[in-house]
Design a protein around this nucleic acid. Sequence first.
DNA 1: TTGTATGCGTTATCAC
DNA 2: GTGATAACGCATACAA
Lengths: 373, 373
Amino acid sequence: MAIRKDGQNSFSRTTLADVARESGFSPSTISIVLNEAPISRYVAAKTKEHIREVAKRLDYRPDAFGRSLRKRRSHTIGVMIFDISDPFCTLILQGIEKSLHSTEFLPFIVDAHNQREQFERYLAMLLEYRVEGLIVVANWLFIDIETLSELERHRVPTVLVGSEMRSGPLGSVLVNNEQGGYLALQHLHSLGHRKIAFIRGPRQLWDSSRRWDGVLRFAAEVGLKMPKKWVVELTGSSESNSSFDEGRSLTSTMLQNDAGFTALLAFDDLTAFGAVRALRDFGRSVPEDCSVLGFDDVPHAALFNPSLSTVRQPMERMGSIAVGRILNEIQQGGEVAPGKGRVDLLPPELVQRESTGAIHPTSKILARKIGKI
Amino acid sequence: MAIRKDGQNSFSRTTLADVARESGFSPSTISIVLNEAPISRYVAAKTKEHIREVAKRLDYRPDAFGRSLRKRRSHTIGVMIFDISDPFCTLILQGIEKSLHSTEFLPFIVDAHNQREQFERYLAMLLEYRVEGLIVVANWLFIDIETLSELERHRVPTVLVGSEMRSGPLGSVLVNNEQGGYLALQHLHSLGHRKIAFIRGPRQLWDSSRRWDGVLRFAAEVGLKMPKKWVVELTGSSESNSSFDEGRSLTSTMLQNDAGFTALLAFDDLTAFGAVRALRDFGRSVPEDCSVLGFDDVPHAALFNPSLSTVRQPMERMGSIAVGRILNEIQQGGEVAPGKGRVDLLPPELVQRESTGAIHPTSKILARKIGKI
DNA sequence: TTGTATGCGTTATCAC
DNA sequence: GTGATAACGCATACAA
């Protein structure tokens, strides 16, 4: 670190001692006054005023390191995300941020870029910074079970958002995927669709399987047939936008094999966007020739063309609930609280927009097209 | 903070002293060895090994607060953003993160949610945490000049990304908006368009005016007429997705007044999405009946339907350049470096996709539509 | 080759 | 009402 000509280290600022010297009072008094500690009741009003004035004039700012060292509290909550460019994470993050605003805590956000190595490095750093709680935002990707269960070893209250660990004491907050899958298929079915194509999520992903369970449950209830040719599966590469590309190519393939389906249920919104693109490339319009339903309700789903019908995850709420749970655990002093290991399953919500419609409105479409010409 | 039954504060961990006690060496030796300080050359290999073994066994982690206090360095770079849900910010953030990975610095990210009050609160906190540099990511919104110029007062090297201050010593990194505006109109003009509608950015926004200057320069060069009825302006509310809504309603209005334009140049991608929606509502298809050109190239522009032609800002590069500049300034010891106050203007790049096309291919469209029917 | 002493900026406890 | 002192965890100059 460079030393400046005036002999001051460029890191140094005005400290309590400076304020003390300048005001003529002792550092302890300054501290007491500026922090409005209980004892400050006994400090003369004039003194207080003077001290505050001097502090302001010198632009004094308490040093977080000195303070945290002394108080043995960091006042930070670590927030680990795996891909900040994933719009899914983004809304959860907002929920977290907003909930933290009203507290004494500052979020310490790091982005592991879907890389295990980064995850571990950042985790270590967060622990060195003595975060008092940890929120892990798992978009539907990876970092395997072992890595996550590592989290339990550290004594920091931790909660997982957007994903569920099949076992282990780690609490989690996520949407009810099973119910979401059920709702999704129910929606298409209620619109009259019987020939439905499916792009399900990666099999190895627990949450994806749960969602699929919901689909299967509804299919069983109404006796829907799901021919193999119309059921495909994402592989789940961790590159961003990959599910768009996969959705597009899987849909293309299905269309070439047997284009007879009238609706398509995608694993998530990005996949749905890809499917819409493939359908259009194939000369099919959405929803007239084929309905498409997504999952998540990312911010752009409503802007898309056609606007995307989807199953909404209450992402912002998931974030704020996670914060609530962490604060709770912190207050309990890091003890294994009764609610620890609990799983909060939030209800999904079907959002109908333009990309899904009743089956066979072909005549109407023809009419409109001719009219336009 | 709760005290545990074993009398330990739940904040406490194993410290250097613990490792010292356990290994039989003194704290200083431990510190020297674990940090691989130069002097550690003189420490016996066996000693080193032993110390490292014990440290690992006790799961020792250096305390960032103790260390930073002593070394008077925080090893953090503050990153202030104004809306994390803005995809524009997202890519810049990624650029910042990636560039920081290879350094000793940790990004400390905060989101001011477009609120001045939050901005100030977070700024104060970042300063308390003694960030060694500050990167401000300004999506095209606000926090007025005074607020930003406040930044100069603090002795922290600061660089602004994505926006430019008209004056003041604050360095900035952004796209060449003037050139971008020029390129945009040039593109539409080269496709044969002469009747062009414009949705320009908020007038009070400096960067927006620069972009508009570029548009005007090209228009002047080729003698393009820009009737007032086809030039509208965003107001620039700070709500997210607002430019979609505004783009949509402004376009609707123009269409109702005089729908004779064959192309539309939007201030940014979100506005363009809104314009496309309005056109579609009006029964116009893009690009057949009207070309639409965006600005930014947000991640979803390519996924959109039709995929959006746009002027790309090199957002990730902007982030990494900002990091480079900050690191530079830090190395110079916070001195007013020669490059300070400099403005890096990065070249924009035209990305042609589906939403723009040559004028009057009407016959082709008719043919296709009839064929499909 | 290793240990001792000191101080970073803060706050809590106690003494005056 | 206010001030002196110690301690938080660490790294370093210096002593041994």
